[in-house]
Design a protein around this nucleic acid. Structure first.
Lengths: 235, 235
DNA sequence: ACCTGAACACCGTTCAAGT
DNA sequence: ACCTGAACACCGTTCAAGT
């Protein structure tokens, strides 16, 4: 309109690797991973799909970058956790670190699957494990035991454990589970018994009867306690 | 050639759900999951892609069926393992069952990822867990502890734990890992130290320095031992 | 009932062209 | 240097048609 308005039609902030990755994370967070297509991503950025390839070489690179983004957030957050003072505190410090990672990952439900699908190792993930390793060492675990510990914890170290019975729609999932169990009741007497017992102890919990958070912590403590027992046995 | 040869041009065995799934498993075993396309699968069966939809409603259903196939094989194999006699043997029986599942899964490298990607629960997987639950109960674990145990074991109960540092090409992966660590040496002193120590203890093991099988067993025993301690504590 | 061919609505990506 | 439009080589799947 005005005479000296630059002729450029709304160039806005120029595209960049950072902006692309932020938009990608936002789409996956909001609409789920299947909605993350190159065309979709471009549209969110107000740009054509092919423009992205000027900043990232491929969609795989986009996924790699998204993981970096999330794990970088984890690394920044855990950096403020103080290191263990007496060796016996290593468990609590490792625990806190892992639960912080978990809290952040809960905001990015797509992240576990994507992290596990990466065959290349990511610098940020490596940094995370290096920090955890520092805690194990400070806690008095040998190099060998620390190595075993990283493997034993696996993705749990990053705060997630891919649940085998995790329907994407909780309500429909619970109903389907109920139907299936009822239908197979004769073939799966133990599962039927278990569910009956749990429903008895905690009525009204047939829906959402598993608390993911406390199940995660139970498994985590099982591993941390076992590792600490190994440590004490080797003193 | 001969006069009374039926006019049908080599109909062979008619297509069936079973045949489709067997072919699908074979393709994924041999060429990897990305090679499993509907067109590819049809070609292996000597048929057009659309013919498959007469026996399976979708590709998702094909993947579901493939999981059923593999876990059914596991269920058949573990069926011959005798149940625990004195309660204290439950750990060994559970261990044997899980390692059998693992051995079978090793023949189907695509299976872990596909199993974890299924949101619907599979009858064969449910049967497997029901059998494991029977062992836990026979071993004296309470319903509640058994429930925690299933969650804590998670996919480990089926014999796999998705490794975070698992390159698809081992040789290239090890080299890339070495390069990356060297490059980030200042930022990841603990990992560098760990690798140096392990290389020192066991020279010539820089390549393939992690024995997946023994790492799996270490983590498994950590969990089983912890669960058994809970059991004894509750007596 | 079972299978087919063509077509549709998507993908990620290459390439030559624009500014 | 950065972005675009058209096109390519794939996907899974629908549909009308064949036997």
């Amino acid at each position: 309109m005005s005479p000296r308005t630059p002729a450029i039609a709304e160039p806005r902030t120029p595209l960049s690797r950072e902006r692309v990755l932020e938009a990608a994370v936002a789409i996956a967070d909001r609409d789920g991973l299947p909605s993350l297509t190159m065309r979709n991503l471009a549209q969110a950025l107000g740009v054509e799909a092919m423009s992205i390839y000027h900043h990232l070489p491929s969609k795989e690179a986009v996924l790699d970058g998204m993981v970096e983004m999330v794990v970088a957030e984890i690394n920044e957050t855990v950096a403020s956790i103080p290191p263990p003072a007496p060796p016996d505190e290593w468990k609590d410090v490792a625990r806190r670190r892992i639960l912080v990672a978990r809290r952040i990952l809960l905001g990015h439900p797509w992240a576990p699957a994507v992290i596990e699908s990466r065959s290349a190792l990511s610098p940020e993930v490596i940094r995370y494990f290096d920090g955890l390793l520092a805690i194990l060492r400070a806690g008095g675990l040998s190099w060998d035991l620390s190595h075993h510990a990283l493997h034993a914890l696996g993705s749990r170290a990053l705060g997630f454990s891919q649940e085998l019975f995790a329907p994407d729609d909780v309500e429909a999932g619970e109903e389907a589970a109920g139907d299936l169990l009822e239908q197979m009741a004769d073939h799966v007497p133990n599962l039927v018994g278990m569910m009956a017992e749990i429903a008895h102890d905690d009525p009204g919990s047939t829906l959402g009867w598993c608390d993911d958070q406390s199940e995660f912590e139970f498994g985590l403590d099982l591993l941390l306690d076992g590792l600490d027992r190994h440590r004490r046995a080797s003193l």
